[in-house]
Amino acid sequence: MNILLFDASHRISGMMTAYYQKVYALDFTDKLNGKGSLYQYINGQDPVQLITFDLLDDQDISMESWLNKNNIQFDTVINNLEHLIGNTLTETSIDEWRKSLFINLHLPFLIIKAFISYVPDDGQIIHISSTAAVSGEAGDVSYASHKSGLESFSKSLSKELSKRNIRSNVISISPKCWRKSDGARQIIQLLKETCNEHMSFLNGQVITLDNGETLS
């Protein structure tokens, strides 16, 4: 299975690259300008830089050409882009709002537009979200809003891409889960299960990992 991670620097990336034999990941040098490199991680070896990209440059076709030339496809793409500031409404500046909007919503849109042709029929997209999208409790208005927008984005994708049998789901994680000693292991376990090809009937859903706390 070929997996593409949207952000190599995210904490789940290291665990995913350790678990799966071959993983691709976008490593941003300048997130706010959509610039970086595509890397390949092969278990036990140093990552290999494959090609640079500039998502905001319409004329930049180097990534597309490289993917075509190498006949690369990604069975599962994982949107693990996240930007959390931790500010209340009064504390959130216009610039901070825009930065969060760009990383949490604009970048996933740009990346999915760029890579969707390289996801085969029966492939899937998984977005990492937060229970803050429902509860608003992260203490960050931008993050809660943008993660909530992301969940609607996933539903749109699940409908639009269903003609190609491409699925789109969200794994929504409680901030408390990240802080638990075995929290990351549980998250990876859920991701692995969601990636499993036997889960082909799972589509358009938000799977919540929160020990039931958003019910209260």
Partner: peptide, 17 residues
């Protein structure tokens, strides 16, 4: 859908605050 979905989380965050 994304723009309207974002309003849900924003409304809840404001309510919390």
């Amino acid at each position: 859908a994304v723009s309207k979905g974002g309003a849900f989380g924003l409304m809840r965050a404001i309510a919390n605050e």
